Amino acid sequence: MSDKEYIPVDETLLIRYLAGEAGPGEAMAIDDWLDADAANRETFRQLQQAWEQGAPAYRAPDARAEWERFAAKHQRPVRRMPVKWWMAAAAAVLCIALAYLLWAPHGSNQAQLLSHQAILRDTLPDRSVVVMPPGSELLFDKRFRVRTAQLKGEGYFDVRPDENNPFVLQVEELHIRVLGTAFNIRTAPDDILVQVNNGAVAVQHGTEETVVKAGRQLRYDRIRHTITVTEVTAPDKNVFAYATQQLHFQGAPLRDVVREVAKTYNVNIVLSNEKTGDCRLSTDFNGQPLAYVLDVITASLGLQYTINGNDINISGNECR
C-alpha cells in the first residue's frame, strides 16, 4: 500500500465510514488501511469492543456534530493514536456510529442471516462456518474486515484461524473471543451455555474473562450473574447435535430422546401414548438419516411410527 496513492485516513474519514457516509473511494482507502497493518485492525476491533460493552440504544448519529465536539480537543492522525487512548477518548463519540453501522435497519453494510423454517448452515466471508436452528439470527458487517458479529438465539461456529484478526462474538451479556475453534452457544431466559468442541474460547463478562477449552462448557446464570465451568458429558453434546448430527443416549427417557431428535432433524415428534415417554433407550447416532434413527428407536422399544410431512407420530404400549 505504501507504493501507491491513497486517500489519507484521519478521524473525520473514519467517523464518516462508520456512519455509512463514506464514498466508494473513501471506503476503499479504509479497506486498504485495515489490510495494511494488524495494529489498525486491532484499533478498530477495540473500538467495536468498547461499543459492545457499553453502547446506548440505537439512534441515528449526527457524525458531523459528534466530530466537531471531538476535534475541538484532539487533532492527531488515526494511525498514530495508541489503542488505550482511543478507547478512552473516542468510544463515547463512535459508539452511536458503530451502532448505526451494525444495526441500521436498511444500512448498506449490514448482513443478516435469519431462518424460521429450517436449520441454516452458511459460510461467513472469512470462510468460517455457522449453523443455526430456526429462529436464531446472526448480524455482521458484510465486509467482515474485522471479524465481529452478534448472535441472537443459538449457533454452532467452526471458526477459521487468523491470529492477526480474532473472531469476536457478542451474545447478550457475554463477549466471546476466539482465534480458531468449534463451539456452540445457546441462550435462554435464565442462562447462556457455551460448549467448546475443539480449541478454546475466551468468554468475557464485564471485567471477568474465563478461558474455556475443548471438552468443557461454561454456564452463565443470568439471574445470579455467576459463571461455572464443567466437563461436557456425552448427553451435553446433544445440545449441538443439530449441527453435528451426533446423538448420544445412555438410559435416556424416550421423551428426552424424541426432543433431541426433533431438534436435530427439525421435525415435530408426538408420543400418542404419553406413558411411552418413560421408556429408556441407550444408543448413539452419527449422521444417519432420520428414517434410520426412527427405525432404531421404535424397534428397540417395540413401538411404531408414522410420518405426515414434517410431523411424526410414535405410538405403542408403555414399557414394563
Rank of each mutant, 00 (worst) to 15 (best):
N165P: 10
R64E: 15
R41Y: 04
D126F: 03
H225V: 13
D278P: 00
V83Y: 06
R280Q: 15
T226K: 04
E52P: 00
A262P: 00
R45S: 10
D278Q: 07
S300K: 03
P77L: 15
A55Y: 07
W103L: 10
L179I: 03
F240G: 04
T148D: 10
P82M: 03
A243P: 00
D10H: 12
Y220P: 09
L13D: 02
C95K: 11
A50T: 04
S2Y: 04
F157G: 06
N268V: 05
I269R: 06
L254G: 14
G180E: 14
L174V: 06
A19L: 09
V93L: 01
K263L: 11
L34M: 10
L114A: 02
S128V: 02
E21D: 09
V9H: 08
Q49V: 03
E52Y: 00
A214K: 02
S315F: 03
Q245Y: 01
V171E: 08
I223F: 02
M1T: 11
R121Q: 01
A299Y: 05
S108W: 13
N268S: 09
L113I: 14
L14K: 14
K263E: 15
S315W: 07
V232D: 00
M132R: 04
S115L: 09
P289E: 15
W103C: 10
E208P: 11
P24G: 12
V296E: 11
V211D: 15
V194L: 11
M28G: 05
G302Q: 05
T244W: 13
P134V: 12
F249K: 01
P161H: 14
L139F: 14
R147L: 06
K84I: 15
Q112N: 08
V239T: 12
L218R: 04
F249C: 01
G20W: 15
K275C: 08
V229F: 02
L113P: 01
A29H: 07
C319Q: 04
P61E: 01
T181G: 08
I185M: 11
I96L: 08
V232A: 00
W33E: 07
P61C: 03
Y242W: 06
L102M: 11
K142R: 13
H116R: 09
D31T: 04
D141V: 14
A63C: 04
Q49C: 05
A188G: 12
W33F: 14
A97M: 10
D10K: 12
G251M: 08
A55L: 02
S282K: 03
A72E: 05
M81R: 14
A118P: 04
I307L: 05
N308H: 12
N317A: 13
P56G: 11
D191G: 01
L34Q: 06
E5F: 07
L303T: 01
D3C: 05
L94Q: 09
E260R: 01
F240N: 10
S300Q: 08
D141C: 07
A188N: 01
L113Y: 10
D284K: 15
A91F: 06
S115T: 00
L218I: 12
Q304G: 11
E260V: 07
F140V: 13
E21K: 11
D190N: 15
R219E: 15
C279T: 05
G135K: 08
R280W: 07
W85C: 00
E274T: 02
K73Y: 03
V159N: 03
Q75L: 09
H175S: 14
S2E: 13
D32L: 09
I269S: 07
R45H: 05
A234S: 11
R216G: 02
